[in-house]
Design a protein around this nucleic acid. Structure first.
Length: 790
DNA sequence: GTTCTAGAAC
DNA sequence: GTTCTAGAAC
């Protein structure tokens, strides 16, 4: 192949040749690569007559056939015009007839618009009114499919000149070259602008397409393109209910592309694009570096926490990141995750720099976690220093707005300003600072090898991190809803670059119209979950922080804290400005029914089954299962779980035991029932009430997605867990994410997904799979069996 | 055509 | 929370 020192030389050569006046230029490029724009730009400034033959419009403005294109091109050539063949022409076979046609009477050139696939996809997804009707949801799938078959043109096919354009500037140069071409002009023959095969960018594109040659190997010498992990560019689609789910083409492989560990390669990742917009959290191992936490114990906690989290959430991914592929923690976690059968498309490990996942690893993550220090300050070493450095000053400023300090076991979400290099370059929209337990005597809050406390804190740290990560999704949804209605325009670089997922959701949102409840407003402003907020603003007895005088509203909280407290108590400095506004809400008239019964049970003797000073038991008026009762607190002002504090623990425990008693009563009559006791994260009705509900969900009143998901996602908070959390932290974890209620419908036993409520109901009537292990094993179900055992 | 969802009204 | 119903989905 020839090369040219000036690959886009616009100056025509020769000009005296009379034999071949015409020119056929085949555009080669995916949808969205800019072929039509290229033609139009040239024709707007051209010095010779051009005809653009576009298959998408050739049949009276509609899509035509290849034959029509050939005929039209032939006519144009006969008329002495030059021709652009504006179709994808990605495969040699598709080009052959046009080359043949041209060769006889003209020079045949190719202009290859070899732009990044993600750019083509994002343009295709965004455009409306495209001539070929390729736009919106199907575009990404089509583009990916086409690009996988791409065969770059060669001179041997019959071209006299091939110009490769890899970026906007190349395209501009090529436009100039062709528009400057006079009626009798000619261009040098040869190949121009082709990138070296080893070129990084090209490799990135090839990796994106997973078409790296077999001999391409990663740094450790392993084949990075094993068929086992062959990865397509995955395209999340929007399901019918507005959740992001991955399209079928993900099934085998998702995008944990490459291998670096023979034993657990399925879960590891050393490169490759993840251009798919799935809500993804990259996190370092917490506390195992500078805080010297035991790796075995830490890996157990990571795997447990991940497993618990993934049971509650779909359409998210967690990625443990470490710099070295020799990392002990990575290999431990990989091994344990495999043993635990954690889905390898939702959780995997990544070897690389967490601040350069996209630019260096070609792996896109919208949220990263930072293993921070209690002062939330830049510096130190390791991940914290690297993230602050990469994010620039704006992260420090944004962090200060959220919190000044952090106690171990907690995390705080910081939206990354769009000006931050980390946001611009890497597409990271949020950083979650998380603080784990410290086993290093040289660092603050040294736990003196107390691994009972240490494990608890590390577990809390991961739970808090993951829950905050989940809450961001809620916030982002709301933000995109706002932006789609024109109220604000959240800058989301993922929109422009990876495009696919978010464009889909935008479409969905437009259909849904404006939705912005009071409750959402609260959620929106604060991407923390309620518990995390409370934890942040709350002195943490169990974590060794003294009580703060400033927290008069929580004065009954753990008084016996502080064996490790010091004058520089981190807890007391934590800002609470975001917290106070959260818990109060207004209640509609219809939502007052339980409140009224709780206050005046004597007026509702018809429904009250049991009455005490503290609680009322009644059948749910619209039971969602064979047995569904409510244990209703009578305490005035206590309306939902987020309001519950340690002082309410006796009440909560009493309600739990009353609920248990009723479950057991029902079990005596029908031993086949299984009960679960819990609270709705965001109840519809005022007045704290515990649901005691049989797990058959066999009821005519269970009618819609919200009904189902309110009992079968993490929106439902198990009473026993809530009590444990309040004992431990003073508050219960409440995921105030109402998008949970819109999640796809999944069987609570076998987790199969169903398109609508009737189909789900007919499935659950027959599904014999056991209830989830975490419910069975954590004593969260009440059955004849559990009763006899316990 | 029927089924199903989701938003408005209460 | 439910009911009603328009219109989307099938």
């Amino acid at each position: 192949m020839e090369s040219d020192p000036n690959p886009h030389d616009p100056s025509p050569t020769g000009g005296g040749e009379e034999a071949k006046k015409g020119l056929v230029v085949l555009l080669v490029g995916a949808p969205g690569s800019g072929k039509s724009t290229f033609c139009n730009d040239v024709m707007a400034a051209a010095r010779r007559p051009w005809v653009r033959v576009c298959q998408d419009t050739i049949a009276n403005g509609k899509q035509g056939t290849k034959l029509q294109c050939l005929m039209s091109a032939a006519t144009a050539l006969k008329d002495g015009k030059s021709v652009f063949i504006d179709r994808c022409n990605l495969e040699q076979e598709q080009r052959a007839d046009f080359v043949k046609l041209g060769e006889a009477q003209a020079d045949v050139h190719a202009v290859v618009l070899d732009l990044p696939a993600r750019l083509c996809i994002s343009r295709s997804v965004k455009r409306t009114g495209h001539e070929g009707k390729l736009q919106g949801g199907n575009a990404a799938v089509v583009v990916n499919r086409m690009l996988q078959k791409k065969e770059l043109p060669k001179l041997s096919e019959g071209f006299s000149r091939i110009t490769f354009c890899h970026g906007e500037n190349d395209v501009k140069d090529a436009v100039k070259t062709y528009s400057n071409l006079g009626p009798l002009g000619d261009l040098s023959a040869g190949v121009f602008g082709q990138k070296n095969k080893d070129d990084k960018v090209q490799l990135g594109i090839m990796r994106f397409l997973k078409k790296v040659d077999k001999q391409d190997q990663d740094a450790s010498g392993n084949d990075v393109t094993s068929d086992r992990n062959f990865t397509q560019a995955i395209v999340p689609r929007q399901d019918s209910i507005g959740n992001t789910v991955t399209a079928e083409l993900k099934n085998k492989n998702e995008d944990h592309g490459s291998l670096n560990d023979e034993n657990s390669s399925e879960r590891s990742f050393v490169g490759g694009s993840s251009c798919n917009g799935i809500h993804t959290l990259a996190f370092p191992s917490i506390s195992t570096s500078d805080f010297q936490f035991d790796l075995e114990k830490a890996s157990d906690i990571i795997v447990d926490s991940v497993s618990d989290f993934l049971k509650k959430f779909d359409s998210v991914r967690l990625v443990l990141v470490d710099l070295s592929d020799k990392s002990k923690i990575l290999s431990l976690v990989r091994k344990k995750a495999a043993e635990k059968n954690i889905e390898s498309n939702k959780f995997f490990t990544f070897v690389g720099d967490i601040t350069q996942l996209y630019t260096k690893g070609n792996f896109r993550c919208n949220v990263i976690a930072n293993a921070t220090n209690w002062r939330l300050k830049p510096g130190g070493g390791g991940v914290n220093a690297a993230i602050y450095r990469a994010a620039g000053d704006s992260l420090e400023i944004a962090t200060k707005e959220r919190a000044e300090t952090l106690s171990p076991g907690n995390s705080v979400v910081v939206p990354l300003p769009s000006s931050s290099p980390l946001h611009l370059r890497e597409g990271v929209t949020h950083v979650i600072h998380v603080l784990g337990p410290n086993m290093n005597p040289q660092r603050p809050n040294y736990l003196k090898n107390d691994y009972v406390e240490g494990c608890k804190i590390l577990h809390d740290a991961y739970s808090s991190l993951f829950e905050n990560f989940a809450s961001i999704k809620c916030q982002m949804r709301n933000e995109s809803k706002r932006s789609s209605s024109g109220i604000s325009n959240l800058q989301n670089p993922l929109k422009g670059t990876t495009g696919t997922c978010f464009s889909h959701s935008d479409q969905k949102i437009k259909q849904e119209g404006w939705y912005y409840s009071e409750r959402n407003k609260k959620c929106k402003g604060f991407p923390f979950n309620a518990a995390a907020k409370e934890k942040m603003s709350t002195p943490h007895g169990s974590h060794g922080y003294a009580h703060s005088e400033t927290h008069s509203d929580v004065s009954n909280w753990d008084e016996n804290s502080s064996n490790l407290s010091s004058s520089s108590n981190p807890g007391r400095e934590v800002k609470e400005k975001k917290c106070a506004e959260v818990s109060k809400r207004t209640w509609n008239a219809w939502a007052q029914a339980l409140h009224e019964i709780a206050l005046n049970p004597e007026k509702h003797k018809d429904v009250v089954m049991e009455l005490s000073d503290d609680f009322v038991v009644l059948n749910d008026l619209y039971p969602k299962a064979i047995k569904h009762v409510l244990v209703l607190s009578r305490l005035h002002g206590l309306d939902c779980l987020v309001d519950v504090r340690k002082e309410h623990l006796p009440l909560l425990k009493q309600m739990h035991s009353v609920g248990l008693k009723w479950a057991e009563t029902f079990l005596r009559k029908d031993s086949s029932l299984i009960f679960r006791l819990g609270y709705h994260s965001v109840p519809s009705m005022r007045q704290l009430h515990l649901h005691v509900i049989s797990q058959d969900f066999d009821s005519v009143h269970l009618k819609n997605k919200k009904h189902w998901n309110s009992f079968n996602t993490s929106f439902f908070r198990d009473s026993a867990e809530a009590i444990k959390e309040i004992e431990r932290h003073g508050v219960a974890t409440v995921i105030e994410d109402e998008s949970l209620l819109k999640m796809e419908l999944r069987c609570h036993r076998c987790r199969s997904a169903h398109p609508n409520i009737p189909r789900l109901k007919s499935h659950i009537a027959n599904c014999k799979a056991p209830l989830p292990a975490h419910l069975l094993h954590n004593g969260l179900l009440v059955s004849a069996a559990s009763k006899s055992v316990g």
